[in-house]
Amino acid sequence: MAEQSQKRSSKAALIITPFLLLLLAGGMTVLGWSLAPTHTVEKYLNIAFMDNLKTQTETAGLQILQKEIDTADAEDTGKKTYPEGKITYPVFGEQYAQLTADAIGLNVGVFFGSNSELLALGACQTTQSAVLGTVGNVVIDAHVNTYFSDLTKLSVGDKVVLYTDYGRFTYRVAESISFDKTDRKYLGVTEGEDHLTLYTCKPELLGNSDVRVGVRCDLVAKEFYEPLQ
């Protein structure tokens, strides 16, 4: 009887032992993992392998909207204009203006926002600058090898006109400018003053330049197509 009981408990031990070992070893592993400095390893992995930007390309989600902007002057069309009026605020990637400068034969679309894809299509306005029709500094840039190749040929007094769906904005060149790419002097906000800043890279022999050149213009006229209510 005692022998049979011993045999039964022996068999039970044989069956239970692997589970007991799994429980004990698993528990010790979990305990050890919770005490281990895994946050340090995670920190290093994050620094090494986590880029700040997403894995998608620069244009992920970008909707580029090109359109025809009417550049017929108001006098030619007999359209009534107003000194103050409604503004249709653009979205990133939208072509919301047409930039013209007869002195250098410039006629190029202006996109709201600036990245390599938009710069390939036309001139780009930085989103931090004032929207046309509002008070402030409108900042527009383009590639020197394409749309702004003759920008530096503009002289003081030359007329620059920007057409939008909601109005026409006329500027006159006030000065030629040149600044380092890290200098924000001409690109920042101008409180209470209306300016237009056009700039591009200084043409080097070939390759990238650290210098930016262009013109700073003063506002001459705002002509809105729809009055403020």
């Binding site: 390599s116 710069l119 390939a120 590639h143 020197v144 090898n145 394409t146 890279c201 070939l206 390759g207 990238n208």
Partner: peptide, 9 residues
């Protein structure tokens, strides 16, 4: 290709 407009190369 994207750099072409900036560098002229």
């Amino acid at each position: 290709t994207q750099q072409e407009n900036t560098t002229g190369i």
